[in-house]
Amino acid sequence: MSEASVVKADPVASPAPPPRDEESIPHPMEEWLRMDRIPHIWCPTCGLGTVVTAFIEGLKQTDLERDNVAVVSGIGCTGRVAGYVKLDSYHTTHGRAIPFATGLALSNPKLKVAVVSGDGDLVGIGGNHFIHAARRNMDLTVILVNNFIYAMTGGQVAPTTPETANTTTTPYGAFEPPFNIPHLAEACGAVYVARWTSLHVRRLTESIRKALSKPGFALVEVVTPCSTLYARRNRLGSGLDLLKFYHDNSTIQNGARTSDVGIDFQKPFIVGEFVDHDRPTWFQLMEARMSATLGDKFIPKEGPSCTNSK
């Protein structure tokens, strides 16, 4: 494909749209966004805005109180999500979104903490934190946006870059085997694992709802188009072409074995809800253990403790 396919604009200008006071009816997302920061920094045909909508739509469908939801991001394109959602939101250091979120969740157990960050952030520089949070079954919902590349820094190879893909640091093609993220998450103990693309927006929304509603380490991987770096360097067209590719090449296989869901460069791949089971969270295990050994002497942590008023 030599040129990015775009939806062509109509050659004839349409009559001016009927006068409508746009301000009188706000976009339903506006209530959930920091509108003073919109437009966002993401490129045209990037999938991240779609993921934000899916996250908010999924959140709205849960029983969670808005005040009790916090979003933590690391660094990178996806790391900017925390800056746009109108919730208590923390933009932290590269790779450390999960440990920061762990501190937040343990400090105030009434919170539901969601981590929204990229593939490089969460399984590259933050890989150690990812596997341990899954092992502990820390009560975190992790939305891992996978665009197969370090985009913010200009398109370097990521731990998810498929073999042979061109990046700025693999100009002759990537040759390291990438992570199969659902398999990694399941092996480490995640209680919920799903993968969708940003085109599967309804299924993605439903998975985010489930993940947020479930206690424990729940992972939703979202394959999204990066038009400016991944698509352009690999001559894959625009983000729209990548959505078309996902449409034609992704197969929904709920319950698929995660070991079978690795992604090869521009080959058909599997999406779906792969893991959904229950096991006690870190907090539940800790409280059970302390109660068993200390009995009445154990005083569970209730909420924030540094306030004057308590």
């Binding site: 939806v7 749209p17 490129c43 085109l199 959505l243």
Partner: peptide
């Protein structure tokens, strides 16, 4: 409802509208 000036012209809505209701404006 289209917020014309917020749009970045990706064409996702035009491509995936099941009823073909939308086109990109000239």
């Amino acid at each position: 409802h289209i917020l014309r000036d917020r749009c970045k012209g990706c064409g996702f809505c035009v491509e995936y509208c099941p009823e073909g209701v939308l086109k990109l404006d000239h």
